[in-house]
Design a protein around this nucleic acid. Structure first.
Length: 586
DNA sequence: ACGCCTGTGCGTGCCTATCTTCTGATAGG
């Protein structure tokens, strides 16, 4: 019996380490090595490995189960494969612990402040003893930063501003990261005896681009069993509360998770309540009050009699509403729309018929053109646009006109043997400072799909940046504006932009605007995407995939399109190849 | 640290604009 329990515990412990955990540790090691001034190529190896783990389609432990399985991954040799196995088995890495003995891990966090890289972080630590964000703030407000060599008032001010932004986004994680933690935890709970329903509610279910915590809701005949299984989950670092209907824990990653257990008769009401948003709940309850009903997390009540609560539809029905998709529950007009029967039929993942923004090894992608084409064919797409970078984006190894001509010939060859899939010749053309495009007129005219985007000089004034992008949209060859605000969730704020002016220009010139489905971009965001649709602009949902695995990011983009009230008709890449061709200007 | 390679090892994103700065650090995918 004891032996079984141990074996079981070990198996579960291993299962609790996700690819993102390996990636997180490798990234931290890379940062620490960089602060120490280690061989830059060694640093890069860890970063590349982190990225590989982050975007791997399958669990790393499946590969680790086979001899030499991990070593087949690009950039993973014997050493890193061994370290991955160590992390999968123990949840940590001796090298990481050893590095943090010399260099406090707080310095890694400090490097997330814009203006602070490895050198300055090390200097702050050596000269001022600053080893945490809190100490950095104290030093900054005391004006001590400017006493350091190379630090002047301007840099101090930039760091103070960076600290403000850092705090503003604190405590929220990207939805895709939340997904990585939620899915195995839910699987762990699902097998509990007596459990009939389980959902992750909250902003996770509404598919917000970031979530503050996870709210898990379960219906079970024996709540104690669910709670026990939750509290003993191997990923739990700290238990904050443990009652019979509510438990709260913090995972090793710092993510807070709440579990609520309700009887099945209340499940729908509880799911509605815990999905929120708060403003949406208030609107629903106000409708109930008008009908002399009380709506709470246990059900809908007339007096003391429960008239519904087992399913969400019962609760909504009682107050005269159809069920509203969770993505719309932000109190942005969805309650009125539902009452008047004009809820949109939202776009779905299955509606998307092709990807209009992907990279290959010809620039900074990690899959070859042939592999990308084959992966898109295997996904059943009608079309894909190959959109590698142009020369100004040097870090990405952007192509010159000659490079594109070479790529065109290969596309022609691949097209000849891939009859079901239309391969569109494209480029992600850099928008230069003055709004001109980083590609000659002849090559631009030869492209089927011209995607344009900003990759440099993010600090321009709002007026200058708006002028820059609007100028680019006026170019007759341009079809799509990619990642319009340049934001990176949790890392970089969007640049200053008059979005209304940009969307007006897009509409006037027939330019499609992208929802970039990279989990840390999701750009346009939900609010801007809805603005776009309301302004008469057509959207595209594209992955910006840099590997065949990243083609699966599509669902993150569709999530945001749904939050923006998009119907299939609002999204250009739900169209057939012929219809898409008509939407792309000639 | 990897990958290619056979040298008891070598080259690798590896460059460039900009600002935080005045020689160096950061940022860009």
């Amino acid at each position: 019996m004891i032996v079984d329990a141990r074996a079981h515990g070990r198996r579960v412990r291993r299962a609790a380490v996700e690819n993102v955990d390996v990636a997180r540790i490798f990234d931290e090691v890379a940062d620490l090595l960089e602060i120490e001034g280690a061989n830059p190529f060694r640093v890069r190896a860890y970063r590349a490995a982190a990225r590989t783990m982050d975007t791997l389609g399958a669990p790393a432990r499946d590969l680790a189960a086979r001899a030499d399985g991990l070593e087949t991954l690009p950039g993973i040799g014997a050493d890193l494969a061994g370290k991955i196995r160590t992390i999968l088995e123990t949840g940590d890495l001796p090298l990481r612990r050893q590095l943090t003995r010399r260099t406090p891990a707080g310095l890694v966090e400090m490097m997330r402040i814009p203006g602070l890289g490895p050198k300055r972080a090390k200097l702050l630590y050596r000269k001022l003893g600053v080893r945490t964000i809190a100490q950095l703030e104290k030093a900054a407000s005391a004006g001590r930063l400017r006493t350091l060599p190379g630090f002047k008032q301007a840099l101090e001010a930039k760091i103070v501003q960076g600290l403000r932004e850092y705090h503003a986004r604190q405590g929220r994680v990207r939805l895709s990261d939340a997904d990585a933690y939620a899915a195995p935890l839910v699987e762990h709970l699902r097998s509990t005896p007596g459990l009939s329903r389980i959902d992750v509610a909250g902003s996770y279910r509404r598919r917000r681009d970031t979530v503050g915590d996870l709210d898990i809701l379960a219906a079970a005949s024996r709540p104690r069993l669910v709670a026990d299984r939750f509290l003993t989950y191997p990923g739990v670092a700290r238990v904050e509360a443990h009652g019979t209907t509510r438990c709260a824990v913090v995972l090793a990653s710092g993510l807070h998770v709440d579990l609520r257990i309700v009887p099945a008769v209340s499940y729908g009401a509880a799911l509605l309540y815990f999905t929120g948003s708060k403003a949406h709940n208030i609107a629903i309850r106000a409708l109930g009050v008008k009908r002399r009903l009380k709506v709470n997390e246990y059900g809908v009540f007339r007096g003391t009699r429960r008239i519904g609560g087992r399913r969400e539809e019962e609760v909504c029905g009682a107050v005269g509403l159809p069920c509203i998709p969770p993505e719309l529950r932000e109190d942005r007009g969805e309650v009125d729309a539902a009452r008047e029967g004009r809820l949109p039929h939202l776009v779905e993942l299955a509606d998307i018929r092709g990807d209009l923004h992907v990279h290959t090894t010809d620039t900074d992608g990690r899959s070859t053109l042939a592999d990308m084409v084959e992966a898109c064919r295997a996904r059943g797409y009608a079309y894909v646009a190959i959109t590698d970078h142009t020369k100004a984006v040097r870090v990405a190894g952007g192509l010159t006109a000659a490079g594109f001509r070479r790529q065109f010939r290969e596309i022609d060859r691949l097209q000849a043997r891939t009859p079901g899939l239309t391969i569109l010749k494209g480029a992600e053309v850099d928008i230069l400072d003055d709004g001109t495009l980083d590609l000659d007129a002849g090559t631009l005219a030869a492209l089927d799909v011209v995607v344009v985007a900003v990759h440099s000089k993010f600090a321009m004034s709002q007026a200058a940046m708006t002028r820059r992008i609007v100028t680019a949209l006026q170019h007759p060859c341009v079809h799509i504006l990619a990642h319009p605000t340049g934001r990176l969730i949790g890392r970089r704020e969007p640049y200053a932009l008059d979005m209304t002016a940009v969307l007006r220009a897009a509409r006037d010139h027939g330019v499609l605007v992208e929802i970039n489905a990279q989990p840390d971009r999701l750009d346009l965001d939900d609010v801007h995407a809805r603005m776009a649709v309301d302004a008469g602009v057509r959207l595209v949902v594209s992955t910006d995939a840099h590997s065949v695995d990243e083609l699966a990011f599509l669902r993150h983009g569709v999530d945001q399109a749904r939050r923006a009230w998009c119907r299939a008709a609002d999204v250009a890449n739900t169209r057939s190849t012929a219809a898409l061709g008509r939407l792309l200007k000639t």
